[in-house]
Design a binder for these strands. Structure first.
Lengths: 334, 334
DNA sequence: TCCGGCGCTCTCCGCCCTAGAGTGCCAATT
DNA sequence: AATTGGCACTCTAGGGCGGAGAGCGCCGGA
């Protein structure tokens, strides 16, 4: 395994006997290799070539034989520095992806924090002109959404102020989706008794809270070009489909969502990911958590033949640092 | 030229005589080709191959022989629909880039509007916690900037309100850079006579206006993978350097800035762009204008051998539509 | 359980050869 | 003067061939 991961060429009995320091003759190694082949752990591309690991070979290797190497101090420091304190979660995660790809010389991939648990924290309305309105919505995840909405009529500055105050006082701290529901229900039930203010606020908020789901880009991929360095991926056709797969954000989001159940590092080898184009690739991921709840996933995509013992701790640490950075700055209510 | 652009193979006298409908024998064509080669307009990759255009050949062709084809109605409609009314200029331009790449099956590239002419329109401060402050800055270009700044001390809600009011009343409509300068000057000159409010507002604004320049990503590139379809670019090494060049945003920004002087379509052929990696590529660009002032550039990157007669009108129209969309929605003061 | 040896099988690489397309030049024709 | 046909030459792409190198399976022996 180690040899193949380093060289990328099928490994033969003779050269292994010579270089691996096992003090075994080629013949012995051949016998063992034949057994391993029967077990489906290794395979040879053609009759008289050396052996290379199969997917299950990798699986066994990673699950039972691998001992991870501790990260180098300077890498740890770089991660800490760069992931310390950045503006939005989006920027933070983009940085994380970039770091992953730079350190591993492979591709980094991240999903943004899940929106489900998004808590309404503060809203602000600014009138523009022509029945248009700038809505600024702050969620507890440090996220700031700007949105321009078209309103059925013009509102005065003070009307908007009043609506914002109403919403902020009444609903801060609740889940955004719930706020919407509650507002709808309340208006429906007690329409006649409500002041125009409340009804207007409801209409506005309805518009304001509606869209942010579909706007978000769920996935960042970085450093795809690094993958061109790997000889086993180096033909155009394969590469093209790989790139296209990587850029199908929704597909990738699905794939990564499958890693989200529990924290800790997960590894998909080759077609375990369910994508043809990733047949020669592995995906090393880890979920990151905010407030002890799994929020998103980040990881590395590279050739199956990658240095897992280095990549695994790196992904692990990055996920932890991202989690910490996001945790630390969840916003107290305004 | 037409033949080479279609086929991508050097064109020989014999096949040209056969297929081009010129009623000339190969020998005649050879003679003419020899002349053209002496003029430096065509060249052959090796002794007994056909001829292909040089950069100056393309230049001459584009400048004097080319007749553009009108765009197909459905393309025009698609552009109009998709570029009609989108949120921020950033989104609009990203869409433009995507459209360019989809329609041409090449790569689209855009720069965001220049920030220089950015007019201060409205500012708002929201206190977060821990001496942190959310600044919402609206410029006349419909752009909304969010920024979190760390302040030297905590401010109360009403202090912030006062500061914002001061700034909005006093400086709305001025260039952002000028606002900064004016504020600095004023505070310096008349420090003792100013209320604490003004000084605080100055400090805040100083912080608030400082960063947005460097945060922006100056360039979007879309559809790079489309370029993999072109056989003349289809080797890994070349491709890699092409991709890397395309992703060096600053480099690309520089390159595109050179097209910004005047509106209208500009074309860079091969190494005219000054980039080795773009030797096999052409860049078709057009500047777009907001309020009759050139604001940014958009265009298409593809193989030198591209269908200029289709690409040119497409880039032209896209630039005009983007300009119109941005123009239309410059914000009146709040 | 390990090893040495033997015959066999692949791939890779360099070499040669041929077919095909194109060239340059020259003399002949219109 | 423009055009053409003819001829010898050149270069590439692609197929076939053969040797070198690496590896394999199997078998008999320690």
């Amino acid at each position: 395994m180690e040899r193949y991961i380093n060289e990328g060429q099928p490994v033969g009995s003779r050269s292994l006997s010579r270089d691996a320091g096992l003090n075994l003759s080629p013949a012995t190694i051949r016998n063992v290799m034949a057994d391993l082949e029967d077990l489906g752990l290794i395979t040879s591309p053609h009759t008289s070539a050396g052996r290379m690991p199969t997917a299950s070979g990798y699986r066994l290797f990673i699950d039972t034989l691998l001992t991870v190497k501790p990260l180098q101090q300077d890498v740890i420091q770089q991660l800490r520095d760069d992931l310390d304190c950045l503006g939005s979660p989006g920027e933070l995660l983009e940085t994380a992806s970039r770091l992953l790809s730079e350190v591993t010389h492979m591709a980094g991939i991240v999903t943004l924090p899940k929106r489900e648990t998004n808590v309404f924290s503060h809203i602000e309305f600014l009138p523009l002109s022509d029945r248009r309105l700038l809505v600024i919505l702050i969620s507890s995840q440090q996220e700031i959404h700007n949105k321009i909405i078209h309103t059925p009529r013009d509102f005065t500055h003070s009307e908007l102020q009043a609506a914002a105050n109403f919403l902020n006082q009444r609903y801060a701290g609740n889940d955004i989706a719930r706020v919407r529901e509650a507002l709808l229900r309340e208006v429906k039930e007690t329409r006649e008794r409500l002041s125009q203010e409340v009804i207007d606020a409801a209409a506005l908020t309805e518009l304001a809270l509606e869209a942010p789901k579909k706007r978000r880009k769920p996935v960042f991929v970085t450093g795809e070009t690094n993958l061109m360095d790997f000889s086993e991926l180096a033909n155009m056709e394969q590469f093209r489909s790989l790139f296209e797969t990587l850029h199908q954000k929704e597909e990738m989001a699905h794939l990564l969502d499958r890693c989200i159940e529990s924290p800790g590092v997960k590894i998909y080898i080759g077609e375990e990911s369910g994508h043809r184009a990733l047949g020669q690739c592995s995906l090393v991921t880890s979920a990151y958590s905010i407030n002890d709840r799994v929020a998103g996933v980040l990881g590395v995509i590279g050739p199956t033949r990658m240095e897992y013992e280095r990549v695994i701790p790196l992904v692990d640490l990055t996920a932890k640092l991202v989690g910490a950075a996001l945790n630390h700055k969840s916003l107290p209510p305004i």
